[in-house]
Design a protein around this nucleic acid. Structure first.
Lengths: 291, 291
DNA sequence: AATTTCTATTCGCTTTCCGCATAGATATCC
DNA sequence: GGATATCTATGCGGAAAGCGAATAGAAATT
């Protein structure tokens, strides 16, 4: 059975006559006639009645055409996959990302992407968010991972949410499971001077009428985790940035939770390349599985 | 694109070599090689890698094969519809049914069935349930509509449920919306001497420790409805049997509801013919829509 | 009755598909 | 290292399928 013959059958059903179907398909009327006859011969049942009035599906033809249309849809999807592959072949995808997304979110997704599209060359640059933005503007980056929201010069998609957690040093008794603002007032804080985390934390506790002692503002997330482990203070930073968290450190949620929204971004003025669109699909599927 | 070529691709993916796929499809190895090459040429992408080790799908081949398998499934469904049509052509379906199912359930369903299968000749005989059973035994009926349950000599399917309702004559004030057994004790009853209705009703009120005056036992449902309208008593009978119910008669549920289960039946020893199976599908769909 | 419009079929040609035979490459065996 | 086995790719020739142009036949329209 030839899929084009199914397309002919569908066209006759839609246009009502062999002649009109022929015009629309840009083949001759006799080709239409023989295509339908060929299907009927192969299946052994009449799919259409026809005469001077044109052509109409028989009852069994109605049942067959439903399946035929689905076959034509699937053929379109096969063509789409082939065209996508041709469009992606020997293309590249340059990703820039701030550190914890680069470390924790991207590697597995890049692996899954490359398994489907092995001919796309993927590069990953770790930059702070301002650097990601600049690289996008300069055309050095195809897709950036940055915190949201962002200005309208970028088109963005939310990819993940990362909770700001409180890291507390080992203590007897251990800190309560659920922290209050009063519990936090006992600590000096080490804040994370990266990807707008310090300002996000200060804005958050200000919004709830709180203010806490900030003893350090540190750029290195691993350093922050070590300092907490050594009892130098408590820290508030995104969970992904804190990973891996050693056993001697307690992790708690803030009294009122704060999330960092991680987004994928391109320049709003640039239509996304096929590789970008396919990678965004992979990222979205990841979010779906994580949910 | 030729659907058989998709079948070849699927076979190679399954068996791992062109040679093994050829053996299983009962074509030559060179035909397999050219079928796969033909698909690749048409789509413009390589679907398989191959060599002395045999053949494996490429990543785009993996994506394409998913759609291809669905196309093959749909082709099977098209073949099934064609074979069904051939099997049904010039066949007949002889239905026997007790009266109210014959009057109310079957006509619309027979119409829907014949719209899909216009070459099946359908006959409908109205018989009481014992007559339906006998006609099935004698091979004069292909499918019977009878109350359930039934003996194991029949294979049955539940098709519908029909509530036994109380018909009450016009009165001032009208009878309460919800009847109690006490309410019923005020009436003489007219019972329906058809399709085991009388015994079903007597069994029901006995099961609940009740017993009521039975003034008449009548075979004609329309006569029963008239007698109630004229104030000769109350009636208990299946709702379908009572239709159409005139305005001057009140319809109420029994204090404890009773349903008649209407089933479709064939002889257990006889595999159902294609026409029977298709008609059962139509009856099941009706139940689905009614739900 | 003539004309128009629909589908079916013939003719001749092109394209596609197939099996047989074999070339070429590579893994396995001795 | 050479012989053998096993895989896929391709040439050849024939059969089958598909196509457009032309035309036959039937039925609706004018």
């Amino acid at each position: 059975m030839n899929i084009f013959h199914l397309e002919v059958l569908a066209a006759v059903a839609e246009y009502g006559t062999f002649s009109d179907a022929a015009i629309n398909l840009e083949i001759s009327q006799s080709a239409v006639s023989r295509a339908v006859a060929s299907l009927e011969a192969e299946l052994g049942v009449p799919l259409m009645t026809r005469g001077r009035f044109g052509a109409k599906l028989t009852p069994v033809g109605e049942r067959v055409i439903g399946h035929s249309r689905k076959i034509l849809d699937l053929k379109e999807q096969i063509d789409y996959e082939a065209n996508l592959e041709k469009g992606l072949y020997n293309s590249r995808l340059r990703i820039s990302s701030f550190r914890s997304a680069a470390t924790h979110l991207l590697p597995a997704n890049i692996a899954r992407f490359r398994k489907q599209f092995p001919h796309v060359e993927v590069t990953l640059a770790e930059l702070d968010p301002a650097g990601v933005e600049q690289s996008l503007r300069e055309g050095q980056t195809d897709l950036g991972l940055i915190p949201l929201p962002r200005s309208e010069e970028f088109k963005t998609w939310e990819i993940a949410r990362d909770e700001y957690v409180v890291l507390l040093p080992k203590s007897e008794p251990p800190p309560p499971k659920t922290l209050t603002w009063d519990d936090l007032s006992a600590y000096s804080f080490i804040l994370f001077n990266y990807a707008e985390c310090t300002s996000a934390v200060r804005d958050h506790w200000s919004r709830w009428g709180q203010s806490f002692d900030v003893a350090y503002v540190i750029k290195e997330d691993s350093t922050i985790v070590s300092m907490v482990a050594q009892g130098l203070g408590a820290a508030i930073l995104p969970r992904l940035a804190a990973l891996p968290i050693p056993a001697g450190v307690h992790v708690r949620s803030l009294p009122i939770r704060l999330n960092r929204v991680i987004g994928a971004a391109i320049l709003a003025s640039t239509p996304p390349a096929p590789a970008v669109r396919m990678f965004l699909d992979v990222l979205r599927e990841q979010g779906k599985f994580a949910a």
